[in-house]
């Protein structure tokens, strides 16, 4: 006869699916033979399935936003701290006379190296970018989260975060262009243009800016884009600007501005 504790253990193994097939058959036989145990088991199985089916609502996007915000802060803090520790170590070491001589030699070597092979410098920059990559990735994720928020302030913050990224990936560029074309708030759209101007070397950005001309209805944005296209001398913008000129609702000042811009680009 099985003792109480063993039965309790077996019930839990059976319910959780931990029990091997062979033991399951044995356990089922035991239940079939004993009505009391069988009743007790059924009752427990019933409440177990209820507990298993307990559900919970989905967490909101606010949770993601505050987590990634906090994570970026921690990563920033750590980066600054490591730099500070490194600096302290260097200063401390410099006071040791035997190392000071070594530093002097290294310094002389660096100066000579700098003058004799200036082509090496871009590699150094590349290294710095590589070190910052994880932080950049987290920040990009934060930008994407913030740009999805219903509050215009948070979306503005998102665009602001995008400005801190040295090398944005195509997803962030896409999100910024989408903001430029679809955001209901003029200030956010303006900020998106400003942010995109950081990446004018990227053909997708230039193309996206040109394509967005036709989407803009706000005079401020139309004028800002006109100024930008003149500065870039972007010939591809002439066609969408001409299309915009056909709009009957176009503000007369904006109309003049666009006409002047087209002339300057041609």
């Amino acid at each position: 006869m099985m003792n109480k504790e063993n039965f309790e253990i077996q019930v839990m193994e059976y319910l959780s699916g931990d029990m091997p097939e062979k033991n399951r058959a044995q356990f089922e036989k035991l239940l079939a033979k004993n009505e009391n145990l069988s009743k007790e088991f059924e009752g427990l199985m019933n409440i177990w399935s209820k507990v298993e089916n307990l559900d919970a609502p989905k967490p909101t996007a606010k949770m993601d936003e505050s987590f990634f915000d906090a994570l970026v802060q921690e990563v920033d803090k750590k980066t600054k701290k490591s730099f500070w520790i490194l600096l302290q170590e260097m200063v401390f070491s410099a006071f040791k006379p035997q190392l000071a001589y070594g530093f002097l030699l290294v310094g002389v070597g660096l100066v000579i190296g700098y003058f004799f092979s200036p082509g090496e410098m871009p590699d150094e920059n590349q290294k710095i970018v590589q070190v910052d990559e994880p932080l950049e990735e987290v920040r990009q994720r934060l930008v994407l989260t913030l740009l999805e928020q219903p509050s215009a302030n948070q979306r503005l913050q998102g665009v602001g975060e995008a400005n801190k990224i040295a090398q944005v990936d195509s997803i962030v560029v896409k999100a910024l262009l989408q903001t430029l074309n679809n955001d209901p708030n003029v200030n956010v759209r303006l900020a998106a243009i400003e942010s995109l101007t950081n990446y004018l070397d990227n053909p997708t950005v230039r193309q996206g800016l040109v394509q967005s001309i036709a989407h803009q209805e706000s005079p401020i944005l139309q004028v800002t884009l006109a100024n930008l296209m003149v500065a870039l001398q972007e010939k591809a913008s002439i066609a969408p600007f001409r299309q915009l000129l056909q709009e009957k609702t176009l503000d007369t000042t904006v109309k003049k501005k666009i006409e002047n811009s087209i002339e300057s680009i041609i």
Partner: peptide
């Protein structure tokens, strides 16, 4: 430290459900 973001993505729902089912309201659970 940024790898914590991936762990967060993997486990955020489970942990949220844990706190919520322990009786905390959604905002506290978050």
């Amino acid at each position: 430290l940024d790898k914590l973001g991936l762990l967060y993505e993997r486990h955020k729902k489970t942990l949220f459900g844990f706190f919520y089912n322990l009786g905390n309201n959604p905002s506290v659970s978050e």
